[in-house]
Computed example of a mutant assay.
Amino acid sequence: MKQQLVFATNNPHKIAEVKRQLGDRYTFLSLQEIGCTEEIPETADTLEGNARLKARHVKDGYGYDCFSEDTGLEVLALGHAPGVDTAHYAGPERSATANNQKLLSQLADRKDRLARFRTVICLLVGGEEHLFEGQCEGRIATAPIGHDGFGYDPVFVPLEGDGRSFAQMTQDEKLRFSHRARAMAKLEDYLKKRQGATHPTA
């Protein structure tokens, strides 16, 4: 029997990534599918805080065990900005194109273009809270490259890769390096252990 999980997001790209990674072992419900249509405040000053806020909103308001994530792009030369402001770096409309343009403009005269993506997942299950983190080290390209992916994918080049940006990779290739995939792998490992402890074999 598949385990049902509420993923506290309506971002179709994030849902698709997670489904592709975990396959048919889980059934995911989005915020829309549980009737949560309001904007959930992300007012914390850390990724951990924002992930916790979103998960708590779902648990307290709708009663579901769930998980939520917050992801930040941290650029060394910019003092780890945009960080918690990653999604709305260029404004509240959360335009990926505008965000990328602002980032490239801020780095126009910088030689140091090292950056990292960091994802923090907050899981609320069985009355307990657990945090899982995944990171991907990389650099910021001098111009957008590639047409796939979403967000900052066209300008982020993982150091572990072959020089292509996330937006030039297939979904499976991106999962090999993805910060979100690494955090999700830790979450899945915990769920497997928890399920084994709850339903031990005879």
Score class of each variant (00 low, 15 high):
M1Y: 12
Q3A: 00
V6F: 05
T9M: 10
N10T: 08
N11W: 05
N11A: 08
P12F: 13
P12D: 01
R20M: 06
Q21A: 00
Q21N: 03
L22T: 04
R25G: 10
Y26T: 03
T27M: 02
T27W: 06
L31R: 09
L31I: 08
Q32E: 07
E33Q: 01
I34E: 07
I34S: 00
I34V: 11
C36D: 11
E39F: 13
I40V: 13
E42P: 01
T43Q: 10
A44T: 04
D45L: 15
D45K: 04
L47K: 05
L47E: 05
E48L: 05
E48S: 08
G49N: 01
A51W: 06
L53Q: 15
L53V: 08
R56W: 12
K59C: 07
D60H: 11
G61L: 12
Y62S: 05
G63E: 14
D65K: 09
C66H: 10
C66Y: 13
F67W: 13
D70K: 10
G72N: 09
G72Q: 00
L73G: 09
V75A: 02
V75E: 03
L76Y: 12
A77L: 14
H80D: 14
A87V: 02
H88F: 11
H88P: 10
Y89N: 00
A90F: 04
E93R: 07
E93C: 01
T97G: 05
T97P: 00
N100E: 07
K102H: 09
L103H: 12
Q106H: 14
R110T: 03
A115M: 09
R116T: 15
R116S: 08
F117V: 03
T119F: 06
T119Q: 10
V120A: 06
I121T: 04
I121H: 09
C122N: 12
C122Q: 08
C122G: 10
C122M: 02
C122V: 08
C122R: 11
C122F: 12
V125G: 02
G126F: 15
G127A: 02
E128I: 05
E129A: 00
H130A: 01
H130T: 01
L131H: 11
L131G: 14
F132C: 07
E133R: 07
G134E: 14
C136L: 10
C136H: 08
R139T: 14
I140D: 11
A141K: 04
A143R: 05
D148P: 00
G149D: 05
Y152I: 04
V155N: 02
V157S: 12
P158F: 14
P158T: 11
P158A: 07
L159I: 15
E160V: 08
G161W: 15
G161T: 10
G161L: 11
G163A: 03
A167V: 03
M169L: 13
T170W: 12
Q171P: 03
E173R: 07
L175N: 13
R176G: 11
H179W: 14
R180C: 04
R180G: 06
A181S: 06
R182H: 11
R182C: 00
M184S: 06
A185H: 14
A185T: 11
K186H: 03
D189P: 11
D189C: 04
K192R: 10
K192L: 04
R194G: 13
Q195N: 03
H199Q: 12
P200S: 06
